Measured scan of single mutants.
Amino acid sequence: GSMEQGFLPKGWEVRHAPNGRPFFIDHNTKTTTWEDPRLKIPA
């Protein structure tokens, strides 16, 4: 929902695949990933 959306880094969006699995869109680089960007520790 909109709650989890608010925690994503700037430029990211979460969508759900037809099977219900969430995936993440990085509008900054125009890419998608199954990995939650929030789980990655910034270098």
Rank of each mutant, 00 (worst) to 15 (best):
K40V: 10
F7W: 14
P42S: 11
F23E: 09
K30V: 04
K10E: 15
V14M: 15
P22K: 10
T29K: 06
A17D: 15
S2H: 14
P18D: 07
H16P: 02
F23A: 07
K40L: 10
K10N: 12
W34D: 05
N19Q: 03
D26K: 00
P37A: 01
R15Q: 08
E13P: 02
W12C: 04
F24A: 00
T33S: 07
T32A: 10
F7G: 15
K30A: 10
I41G: 12
R38Y: 04
D26P: 00
M3W: 13
D36A: 00
G6K: 09
I25S: 03
G6F: 08
F23G: 06
V14R: 05
H27M: 09
V14A: 05
M3E: 09
T29A: 05
W34H: 05
Q5N: 14
Q5F: 11
R15P: 02
R38V: 04
T29W: 02
T32W: 15
H27P: 05
T33F: 07
G6H: 12
Q5E: 14
P9M: 04
W34M: 06
W34Q: 04
K30L: 08
E13T: 01
H27K: 05
G11N: 07
M3Q: 13
M3T: 11
V14Q: 09
V14P: 02
D26C: 09
R21M: 09
G20E: 05
T33R: 04
N28Y: 06
R21Y: 08
P18L: 08
P37N: 01
I41E: 10
R38G: 05
K30Y: 05
T29F: 03
P37I: 02
K30N: 15
E13K: 00
G20F: 01
N28F: 07
P42M: 10
W34V: 03
T29M: 05
E13F: 02
N28H: 06
A17W: 05
F24H: 02
F23K: 08
Q5G: 13
N19C: 14
N28L: 08
K40R: 10
E13D: 02
T29R: 05
T32Q: 10
P37R: 00
R21W: 08
G6P: 09
K30H: 14
R21V: 10
R38H: 04
P37K: 01
T31V: 07
L8G: 02
P22R: 09
D36L: 00
G20Q: 03
L8P: 03
K10W: 07
T33H: 09
P37W: 00
N19K: 02
W12E: 03
E35Q: 13
K40Y: 11
E4Q: 12
D26W: 01
R38I: 03
W34L: 06
G11T: 00
T29I: 02
K30P: 02
G1K: 12
D26S: 01
I41F: 13
K30M: 09
K40P: 13
D36F: 00
T29N: 09
W12T: 03
G1N: 12
T29V: 02
G11M: 01
